[in-house]
Design a protein around this nucleic acid. Sequence first.
DNA 1: TATATTGACGAAAACGTTTTAGTAAATTAG
DNA 2: CTAATTTACTAAAACGTTTTCGTCAATATA
Lengths: 338, 338
Amino acid sequence: MVTIKDISKECGVSPATVSKALNGYDEISPETVELVKRTARKLNYMPNAAARLLKTNKSHNIGVLFVDDTMSGLTHEYFSRILNSVKEEAEANGYDITFISNNIGKRKMSFLQHCRYRNCDGVVIASVDFQNPEVLELVRSEYPVVTIDYSFDNSSSVVSDNQEGAYRLASYLAEQGHRKIAFIHGERTLVTQKRIRGFNRAMSEHGIETPPEYLVEARYHNAESVRRATAQLLDLEDPPTAIMYPDDFSFIGGQTEILERGLNIPEDISVCGYDGINLSRILNPQLTTWFQDADRIGKESVRKLVESIEHEKTSAAEQIMVSGKFLSGNSVGKWENK
Amino acid sequence: MVTIKDISKECGVSPATVSKALNGYDEISPETVELVKRTARKLNYMPNAAARLLKTNKSHNIGVLFVDDTMSGLTHEYFSRILNSVKEEAEANGYDITFISNNIGKRKMSFLQHCRYRNCDGVVIASVDFQNPEVLELVRSEYPVVTIDYSFDNSSSVVSDNQEGAYRLASYLAEQGHRKIAFIHGERTLVTQKRIRGFNRAMSEHGIETPPEYLVEARYHNAESVRRATAQLLDLEDPPTAIMYPDDFSFIGGQTEILERGLNIPEDISVCGYDGINLSRILNPQLTTWFQDADRIGKESVRKLVESIEHEKTSAAEQIMVSGKFLSGNSVGKWENK
DNA sequence: TATATTGACGAAAACGTTTTAGTAAATTAG
DNA sequence: CTAATTTACTAAAACGTTTTCGTCAATATA
């Protein structure tokens, strides 16, 4: 391993000078800087992040806390895209990322301890149980934190505009003439609550009374659970003519149920998804859905986090809302009161 | 930040003793060990990974090199599952993972340099262009390396049994009476070559002559490209009665084409996928496909890598093959020479 | 010319560990 | 009862950086 000392010997200057030359201090003569840099390149020198960290207390490492229990975190395209853009934005800013977990080897440690162990400079948190005491401990800690799709009072967050998304989808269905609109929503998280609110607003704006049995809970990203919910709706005395699904993926479970009953989309029943993942674009029929801008969400999170890290004094907590986009497909038909 | 010195003061012993007590050296009296550990817990002490690394030269950090250009790396369920199991197995062994890239901040560095910068103990490489000079540099370096789905001579690898998978699928189609079997395969990587070999073996064992136009290349995970390939096959003078697809996801592109021509699966045409991802289980019809054991692949990679890291002397390069599983669905029909 | 300032560099301490080479006391062996 | 060994500890160096104070010329100022 080639160190600063090797360079200093080769150049006949002190290690201090090498360090300064490499880090662009202005008290080193241009010629020396040139010499040092050339030698560094020649020797294929790479700074040692750990040694540097020890002095500077900056690891240039961002902790990423994603759910890991159900594993649906990484296979859910929405989250894997967030992760990917978090990674890319981090790298663009000179940071690496480290997954934060609470069991590393035999050593049991809390999320916070893991962060300290690895000297993270900050953490982005997504797709976790935000009631979890360990998560709360982390949020309340000395660390700069950005949460995704959930907001705490004293830290920054980036959230997808769930209320708007559900509102727009529901409004669209109503505008197509539907009056019996059901909403299969996910578990009752903050995200779900926002979507329900958006849905309700659209309904009331269109003067539609939604019977309570039109709102049914299923599990996000779970086709089987959504299929059951769909069956439940279709079994109703007065079944809906349109169904909003919790997400594009789980919709396929609903589709199975619909097909098996000999119904056609969108002739007999209209549907729409949520997320706007790749899958939704290639499905038959193509889904009408709401695109969540996962890339921007990841990117904004890191941008804000890095700002908090590097300008701790001047950077204030901020709630950032990322808007999505309506994606039209072939899954919604006009309902003409047949 | 509470350090070893804080503990040493609190306990009235030297830092050296604290370190040894914490690390289970046997030259410390049981009482002292007890006292030190208790105090450490009381003060909420966490060792500083960077400081430790500096002395021991072990970072307990595994580099993960996944493709990041097309981004299909992380959204492809096969790879996201590998990543997930890599992460979990790493954590189980006391390692964190760091994504290796070649542009971190403004600093342009090679993959190898990035590894050195972060002091990785070893690297697992998957889903990259294995001809890439930077990848080769890394493979040939001083680092323990495990490659996934590609083998180099002097390092270890974990590969999915692609030949077997394609062989079994093709055999199955033949056993169902099909004689006109087409294979839409992916780009000509090593993986693809293995699959083609398996396909060919199955064909020749069943005495089937496959016209060259039944083998068509498309892009993995790309519905549009696979749809075009499907159209090409269906436009043939003598179209196939069964099609093997490059992967479950891209099959949906093929399905679109098939449906638009008014054909039914499996009555008019039989299909099978590859990968056995979640999606394949919930699709209509359910796909007959080959399950690749991504979890085991990730796990074995890390197991082998950790072995190479921790027993550098005794651990020899090894090629590990992970077998998959035939998943039957409703996408293949018997072909009775109608 | 004497003094103050600037420019270019180096010595050394520090960051939090681990580990080698002791050391002094207690125990055992002869 | 010495001498040798063992037990339980410590001092200090080292890992590769960064950074604070110097220092010593050279230049600018009075």
